[in-house]
Design a protein around this nucleic acid. Structure first.
Lengths: 104, 104
DNA sequence: TCACTACTTGAGCATTTACTCATATATACA
DNA sequence: TGTATATATGAGTAAATGCTCAAGTAGTGA
């Protein structure tokens, strides 16, 4: 069991560290598997969406599957959602801590 | 249980999405609690280190505690390390998947 | 007070990022 | 072949990021 380099981990986290990319992953989680659905759903400009998805595919987070004209995306690893959920949990706790501080 | 906004989650992930900030957190995990130790350990220029630490403190990830001239840092929430470990696990799996693909 | 250590910050710079508009490519099907 | 739908990309731009050097602030103890 070797430690993964900070550079690679940063690259993985960086791929997720954008509101729109998180929203894209959440849309896929809810069953919107192609960008022709995700775009309108999230109200993202087509080329912008395309570039965000490209980042997720390039980093090995999404896997594209062509189906005629459309391309369906699935997450390569469901564990990615654990990571997203954890980040939400951390935000929640951090917020609560700072509220407590103000109250003291 | 409300969903945390993608913006806040992105902000949390973004705070971690840099090789040096990950290395700083790992150094703290190993017991190097002040930047006077972390700097030499990681061979980071002092002002650069200061700015990275500032980001981690501002985001509520690190908590500073003055002790004379030095400032000791501790993580606000140990769960941050779960997140870092998870990112490493995802990198590992992603790498293995791409190796398997080449072998097919 | 002065000097020393620890840390912060202003300023400047190069690089990267996110975004948009317009255009190009790819697939399906008449 | 032509047309429609889905996706990708070139080019340009504004803003953010990471870094460094130099100068500043803060606490400690002589």
């Amino acid at each position: 069991m070797t430690a993964i380099s900070s550079k690679l981990r940063a690259r993985m986290l960086d791929a997720l560290a954008h509101p729109n990319r998180i929203r894209i992953l959440e849309a896929i989680r809810l069953g919107h598997t192609c960008s022709c659905e995700i775009g309108p759903e999230l109200n993202l400009e087509q080329s912008n969406l395309s570039r965000h998805i490209r980042i997720l595919v390039d980093r090995g987070i999404l896997i594209p599957e062509r189906d005629g004209v459309r391309i369906n995306y699935k997450v390569a690893d469901e564990e990615i959602y654990q990571l997203l959920d954890l980040s939400g949990e951390l935000v929640r706790r951090t917020t609560e801590r700072s509220i407590r501080e103000v109250e003291l």
